[in-house]
Design a protein around this nucleic acid. Structure first.
Length: 111
DNA sequence: AGCCTGACCTAGG
DNA sequence: TCCTAGGCCAGGC
């Protein structure tokens, strides 16, 4: 596994329960060169990985569950988020800004 | 090797 | 304010 993937997984694993972040935020945290698409690609690969990655806490910048179809089931992602106390309506996270978890702030302290 | 695609984002018209 | 185009990198064919 490449370093990039590992770094992405590390960041995603830092997301606390009931919080969410965006692909772009993670991408920026790693440096814009990586690109937000790579984060999504890494999430896709995370299904195969033996390490647990809470990919359901990562959404696009609008707070929309663009990756729900990749969870195998149809409402698995939505269910997981709801079980963590996040309100999801019509594939959209309510109060996204409220639940938003900024990698910059946390990683500044953690790393 | 080249082309197409993808769980994205930003900028310009 | 909505729509289009471009940029980014990795993988499949």
């Amino acid at each position: 596994m490449s370093d990039l993937y590992e770094r992405i997984y590390t960041i995603v694993r830092q997301i606390p329960q009931g919080r969410v972040t965006s692909y772009g935020a993670i991408a920026r945290c790693l440096g814009t060169k990586s690109g937000a698409r790579m984060v999504g690609w890494a999430m896709n690969a995370s299904h195969v990985t033996n390490v647990y990655v809470p990919a359901h806490r990562v959404v696009n910048r609008n707070g929309m569950l663009s990756g729900k179809h990749h969870f195998g089931g149809s409402t698995v992602m939505e269910d997981l988020l709801k079980s963590e106390g996040i309100e999801v309506v019509d594939d959209q996270i309510m109060d996204f800004g409220k639940h938003f978890w900024d990698p910059f702030v946390e990683l500044k302290i953690k790393i």
